[in-house]
Amino acid sequence: MKKFFALILALVMCFALVGCGEDEKASPSPDVVETAAGFSASDLTLKNGDKEYKCDVYIDDIIADFGENYVYSEAMSCAYDGMDKVYGYADANIDFSTRPDGDKDIVCEMYVHGGDWETSKGIKLGSSREQVIEAYGEPTQETNLMFYYILPASNAESEGASLYFEFANNAVSAIGVTAEQLIGEE
């Protein structure tokens, strides 16, 4: 009987250690992101007054709304096939970046750096780090200058949509929203 107990004990310990070994090997990929507790797809917007903007719309629609008075820059993308294009509206303190979508260009990033812009949860330029965390939870990625809130991508070939905050002197100095994007050629 003692031998039987010893055998059982040895088996149990073996299984326990096997479990530990698997935990060690399962180093998470940084691409596999955990969504912050207070962050969801509904937060991927920027508001100014009663107007709200989001990515994944055609730049033509943005131009129709903001007008033709933008600063334009473009370059062949070294990340995607086609051109990187940016439409900067200095008066509105917002830049729209696009990626090719067939014959059209679709907004893949919005970036605000001044004015009365705010997020769907009321974070504005000048808000503190603590206020951002209170609104969205701990960031998915963080550096000394940035908070990134990133949604998991819908497939392994893409990177997730994100909301990010830049800080200067412990206050939000710019806010950006990016769309989910395919990594590489399109």
Partner: peptide, 29 residues
């Protein structure tokens, strides 16, 4: 999970004209 040191400046992320391919006279924001 703790707030990091306060930066003194923010990075510029405003795009500007690519020197090799962009013909426009971009004035970065």
């Amino acid at each position: 999970t703790t707030p990091t040191e306060t930066p003194s400046e923010t990075p510029s992320t405003a795009p500007s004209e690519d020197p090799s391919t962009a013909p426009s006279t971009d004035v970065s924001t």
